[in-house]
Every structure is written in C-alpha cells, then in structure tokens.
Design a protein around this nucleic acid. Structure first.
Lengths: 224, 224
DNA sequence: ACCTGAACACCGTTCAAGT
DNA sequence: ACCTGAACACCGTTCAAGT
C-alpha cells in the first residue's frame, strides 16, 4: 500500500556491511513502517542483490533486533544526569516515549529481542534512579519492573494507535471522533467510559503519561 | 516451523458462518500461534476453499480483530462483583493477565483493533472501581489510563517472552539462565541490573504484577 | 570472501466459474 | 447467495554461479 518512493539508489561505492544494511533498514522502517522493510526493497536501496544481505545478517528477525538495539542505544546513550532521581526517571520515560513515537515500528520490537539489550538499558537507567530514591531490598526490583512495564506499555500503545489511524491525521480530529464514539456507547454497559469522554478529547498524551509515572512514584514513596 | 497437526478436518455439515470461521481461527491461533493462522490452513480445517472465507470476513486483519474481541468478551463477561474496589481491580488485572497468558497471540492484537472493543471493556471495568475508590474529577481518567496501560503492558510482555523462549521450556531454567546472563554484564555499565539478578531468578510473575498494581493503587490513594 | 539473481516454498487476496 | 480453487502479486530464504 505504501508507495515505494523511487529515491535514488545509494551509490554502490562502499562495500556492504552490517552497519550499512542496518542503516538502510532503519530508513526504510521509518519511511514506510514495518511492512516497508523487505529484502528486495533493501537490496534495491543498497544497489545489490537480495541474497547479498544474508552474508551480513542471519535473517529478517535478526535484522530487526539489531536495528532496534541500534536506535535505542543511539538515543539513550547521550542522556545527562539530572538534578533529582525523580526528574531523571521522568527524563528517561519521556525519552523512551519519544523514541517509540518517532519510530513506531520499535513498539512491536521492544518486547521481543531474544536478548533484549534495548530493554535492559532502560531497566538499568531506571534502576539506578530508584536506588537513588532510597528504595531498598526486593522493593527495588518490584518498583523498577513496574516503572519499565508502564513506560513501555504506554509508549507502544501510543505508537500503535498513531500507526493505525492514518498517517498524520489531525490528532485533535481523531480524538474528537473517538470521544464522540465513547459518548454514544450504551449508557448501562459503559457508564464510566461515557463519563470521561470529554477528558479523552481534551487530554494530552505526554501529560497523562507523566501523571502515570508520578502515580507510580507516589506509590513507591508511600510504600517505603 | 510449527508442525501442522493433521487433525481431522471438521465435518462439512454446518454451513460456513463468521462464527464458525472465528472459532476455527482461535483454535489455530491457540495451537500454532499467529503464524499458524493461514487462510489455507483455515480452509482445510473448515473443509472449504480459501476464497469462501472472504464471503464472511473482509480480510485477515478483520478476522484477527473479531477473534480478539470474541476471546476477551467471552472471558471478561462472567466476572462477579468483588468485595472491595481494590480487590475488584486486582481481579480484573489477573483476569487480563491470564487471558493473554493463555492466548499469547492476543498480546499483539490488544493494542491494535481500530475500534478496540476489547480494551474498552477493560477500561470500563477498571473505571467503575476507580470511581468506587472515591477518586474524583480528572484524576479518574488519569488513574484508569495508568492502570490499564500497566495491566496491558505487563500482560503483553509476559506473553511475548513466553512465546519467544520456546514452548513450555522450563520457566525456572530460563530464569536461571537469564539471571546468570545479568550477573555477567559489565559491572560499570550494568551495576543495578547485576545487583537484582538474584531477584529476577526468584521472582514470581504474577506476584510482581500484583505488586505493581498495588504500587499504582497506593499512588492513587496518596494523591487523593 | 563476497556478491548476484533466479528459483523455491510459501503468503493474502481476487475472481471466473460453478451450485 | 454462497462456495471452489486456480491464478496473481507478493514475501523470506536458498543456492549455484560468478568475481
């Protein structure tokens, strides 16, 4: 369905390498989504044969894993230490949210990854800050797991809904339409959902996301 | 890869219907995972031609949506009211966790669904209990969103990791191996992750999951 | 060692032809 | 109205053949 932009095939000077392949794969993924990543399309963009790619990459699944790790590592690596643990956690959260928002195909990948380097990086970063908050013992593991699950869950969900509802369709318009749908639900069966339809229309994704983080942080504080 | 169990083709007595098709699709999905659901396999099981299915279902994507809604509705519908809102929330959470655990293919679907009936049902159920907790105003929307995101996030992640790591490979064994991997990480870069490796090995998924719910509930209570 | 591109075994989907 | 199954336009992956 996505129109395959003809885009001048890369000059075939440089030798093929996993790095170049992964780079081209990320471009394709960003431009056309997961279904745009095809060994044929990749070969065309790299001005080579589709079989050549297999010399540098085991298969498509591995290619996706490597691409995922590349994007996450690239973006997460240059985070500066923040003033407070609480602020640092919010920073990492927003950072993940934005990576997934900018590369919606990441969503589906983040869970997989036989050795999920990407997720481990997020886990470690959040973990240090939870330690800094003064959480002790087994509560550390629990708190970090909850935060990471929440962060990934919201990020993926956000990216997925953006992917399904047409390109950059007006967000406000989409929310208005969805809110209307909520208001028209059965009053008996969906009384709560109907009652918050207006909130749905007015809400800001990032604000809600951070409010959720604060809720968990408050819970962590309360159980300490 | 999954061996296609020959399984006697259904007697071709009953006429084809969306209901029968969806039923067979769910069976296929449960037995062989998402990649086992094929129009050819479906046609074989229903003892019909692959084209016939299109008379009752628009395409594969719609089939997955309908199957998802069917499973969620079926399981979520017969939940009894619980003694306290807090307990009711935990019940819904566990219920979702178990549905996704029993039907790992649900994970990928739950986010999508152009009109996500399945998610709305969960949203509504949690919403009522949050109201019952005495949360008021815009905090309702925020609290429910956070809970639902968390519940879905953990459930999907759990199902996905179970899917990736071979069938019913011994869970304890897998955790032990993963914990070892954590302990061997770079001491500088992954100090926190290393320090909780033992917890990873000993943790119970459901207990951790519920502990996370409690964390959010504590946060909701604290911000009230 | 690395690349080429035809070939193979699959898919989802369509559609003329049947009943 | 509903079903059949060959045909079409794709995939990922393999592999003999080239350099």
């Amino acid at each position: 369905m996505a129109k395959k932009a003809p885009r001048a095939p890369a000059r075939r000077d440089a030798a093929l390498s996993q790095e170049r392949i992964v780079g081209a794969a990320i471009e394709l993924l960003d431009e056309q989504g997961e279904e745009g990543l095809t060994f044929r399309a990749l070969a065309t963009r790299l001005a080579t044969g589709s079989g050549a790619i297999y010399w540098h990459v085991t298969n498509k699944s591995e290619l996706l894993v490597v691409a995922t790790n590349a994007v996450v590592a690239r973006t997460l690596s240059d985070r500066l230490p923040s003033s407070s643990p609480r602020k640092a956690i919010r920073d990492v959260a927003v950072c993940v949210f934005e990576i997934v928002d900018a590369h919606p195909w990441l969503g589906a990948q983040l869970w997989r990854a036989p050795s999920p380097t990407a997720m481990l990086q997020i886990f470690e970063r959040i973990g240090r800050q939870v330690q800094a908050l003064g959480v002790r013992g087994s509560a550390q593991f629990t708190s970090v797991s909850a935060l990471v699950s929440y962060i990934l869950g919201v990020s993926v969900q956000n990216a997925e809904s953006r992917r399904t509802f047409e390109p950059s369709a007006d967000r406000a318009e989409f929310l208005a339409k969805e809110a209307t749908r909520w208001k028209e639900l059965d009053p008996e069966e969906y009384s709560f959902t109907r009652s918050v339809a207006t909130q749905l229309r007015k809400h800001d994704d990032r604000t809600e996301f951070l409010a959720g983080i604060d809720l968990i942080l408050a819970g962590i504080g309360a159980s300490k």
